[in-house]
Nucleic acid binder design. Structure first.
Lengths: 192, 192
DNA sequence: TTCATTTCTTAACTTGGGTTAACGTTTAGT
DNA sequence: ACTAAACGTTAACCCAAGTTAAGAAATGAA
């Protein structure tokens, strides 16, 4: 149950066994069905989530249409950082795309850990920095690449997304509509 | 010289006079001509910059073309956070768009301040969080809005950009080309 | 003030994504 | 294994942004 999160945390900071056990004792396990939401817009994001198994996607509702922001897989973390930090309602929705098992880390617990085990502050900072770099990479993809380049790059860099995520969500993530992605796929096939 | 930065820092953390004087004693002043670069791609960003007067823009070179990422004005901070944190070469170029006066805060100085005056850690975290929220807002603008909506929103939310920045840089920032921005402006005028 | 440079607009044409709707395929859940 | 729901592709048409090039206007540096 806690093997994966232990590996990930160890890659950030060194904890001895008692510290780690104390940490895991504060986690909650959550099982999600396909399409089940953990966070809806308007709610405050007061947890962060570690993915043991399955995958998540977050999306915005824009004029009644879903705009996909990102996908997360095993060993990934998710929180709506904006809402989490500010305590303001989130404008994101987050749902499971497969049967998913999460470890839930409430903000109150992490805030307490910052004080009780100061090493966790470094962990918090590194997670935040990773979040920043992640969104910057996505932004650069949008600003520097054409939709076709984005798709080709996704195949190369994140094959998991291609394999496990339905095409219309991928289209939305790439900033285009499903028929466009179909045409791009056809164009790529024709040019081979 | 240090009046503006004092106000901004005070809005984040409380410093007494000696602490603040110690801080400012570590700052360098830098004057830039219009179009002068402070950072070019390939260099490591090992300073952060506070703008006393003037404005900055950062951009990427993509296939020989400039893609504008953001504008910064008086009392704003700039650093290429990715390069600053990782120590890796930046892919950003940053230039002054007007005669500009900067206060330069070297990374080594801030790192030392984290240790000597722990209150500065909070300052560092808040700056990082602000950077994250800033880029997320930009990303949401790109994913949720049409170019025309982006321009109308810019007029409303950041009139300084409209007033002080040449149109072709604004176009690039909005993710479009100058003729498109001209057409959008015409469309808006015609519908009034 | 002058003049080179930068900036903005416009026009004509191209390109590629959006829209809608239909159809066929795949998949999840029972 | 069956069925309803979800998903992917295609076609026809529309429309906005890209491209290129030309010329006008604004601006900054001397």
């Amino acid at each position: 149950m806690y093997g994966q999160i232990e590996k990930v945390i160890s890659s950030f900071i060194d904890l001895d066994k008692s510290e780690f056990d104390y940490f895991t004792s504060k986690l909650q396990v959550k099982h999600l069905k396909r399409k089940e939401l953990i966070l809806s817009e308007g709610q405050v994001c007061s947890n962060s989530y570690f993915i043991n198994k399955g995958c998540l996607r977050y999306f915005y509702n824009v004029n009644g249409e879903e705009v996909t922001g990102q996908f997360f897989f095993e060993n990934g973390w998710y929180a709506d950082f904006g809402s989490y930090l500010s305590g303001k309602p989130s404008d994101q929705n987050i749902e499971a795309l497969e049967k998913t098992e999460l470890l839930v880390l409430p903000k109150a617990v992490l805030d307490k850990l910052f004080i009780e085990i100061p090493k966790f502050e470094k962990f918090g900072r590194l997670i935040a920095e990773k979040a920043f770099l992640g969104i910057r990479q996505y932004t650069e993809m949008l600003t520097k690449q054409t939709p076709e380049e984005r798709y080709l790059n996704l195949i190369k860099e994140r094959p998991k997304v291609i394999e496990r995520i339905p095409q219309h969500y991928i289209a939305s993530y790439l900033g285009i509509k499903p028929p466009s992605l179909s045409r791009i796929r056809k164009r790529i096939l024709d040019n081979k």
